[in-house]
């Protein structure tokens, strides 16, 4: 990628982050407060109201179980939602200045991943401080898992943002689809909690691998199998390639439809 594009992505990313935090009263602190509040709510609802327990004798507490999958999910779903409208929202700029349009998508995905992966690190550390059984040695590996997830997300985002230019109601449908996808992945529950005959259906959901792998490296709950890792990386790379092709195909015509 040419340096100009990289500089542009850097600029738009900075601006995204500023837009998110500078207008708000608490500024950058909000990035930390939000996950903490969310965590408190989930702890209350799942641990104290639903009395959720995980199957297995050496199962981790429900809160770290939830956190390790929910934070990557938030990064994924927010990146998708933000980037889908990224091209459309920058229509004014696209019509006036010649610049590679994919930088808008990259900046939107990038900012979501940056905010939520930092939040992820913070919350993992907080849980550790609170005495949860977390393997901090697995944290670098967990961050490495964000790489294929980022590729997968960017690939999907390129397709969706290009489609959104033509089909404006895509973004409405997307909220529903993402919710469905979240509940169809082992985010709030463990694979083992499902009836036997439904369990393998989970593998059709690309996020299943990530939810289970994050838990595996940080909590030692389940383990990453090499073939599944290979498939996940392959899917991520394929998504990125297809996304780039799709975007490039429609890119030239955005201005006519915006």
């Amino acid at each position: 990628m040419p340096t100009h594009s990289l500089t542009l992505i850097g600029q738009f990313l900075q601006r995204e982050l500023r837009n998110r935090f500078s207008g708000s009263f608490s500024g950058g602190l909000w990035a930390l407060i939000q996950p903490l509040v969310q965590l408190a709510v989930y702890t209350f609802v799942f641990v104290h109201v639903f009395k959720a327990r995980l199957p297995g004798s050496d199962a981790p507490g429900f809160v770290p179980f939830l956190v390790t999958a929910l934070w990557p999910w938030t990064a994924f779903s927010e990146a998708i939602l933000r980037s889908t409208t990224a091209v459309q929202e920058n229509a004014a700029l696209i019509g006036k200045i010649a610049l590679p349009r994919k930088v808008f998508v990259f900046a939107a995905v990038g900012s979501s991943f940056l905010v939520h992966s930092l939040g992820f690190v913070a919350i993992v550390l907080i849980l550790k401080l609170l005495g949860q059984r977390i393997d901090l040695a697995g944290l670098p590996l967990a961050l490495l898992l964000y790489v294929p997830l980022l590729l997968l997300t960017t690939g999907l985002a390129l397709v969706l943002s290009a489609l959104q230019v033509f089909v404006r109601d895509l973004i409405q449908a997307l909220g529903q689809i993402l919710m469905l996808m979240m509940f169809a992945a082992p985010v709030f529950y463990a694979r083992e909690s499902l009836p036997e005959h439904l369990r393998h259906w989970l593998d059709l959901n690309p996020f299943t691998f990530y939810a289970e792998s994050f838990r595996s490296v940080l909590l030692g709950y389940g383990h990453i199998e090499a073939p599944r890792l290979a498939i996940a990386v392959l899917v991520a790379v394929a998504a990125m390639l297809i996304g780039s092709w799709f975007f490039r195909r429609l890119d030239r015509h955005f201005e006519d439809f915006l």
């Binding site: 489609l163 033509f166 089909v167 404006r168 195909r249 429609l250 015509h253 006519d256 439809f257």
Partner: peptide, 19 residues
Amino acid sequence: RYPKVFHRRDRLRALASLM
């Protein structure tokens, strides 16, 4: 030439023919 897109149908058709 600018495409004529007045209806949602037109946008879909344009998308299909571009792809």
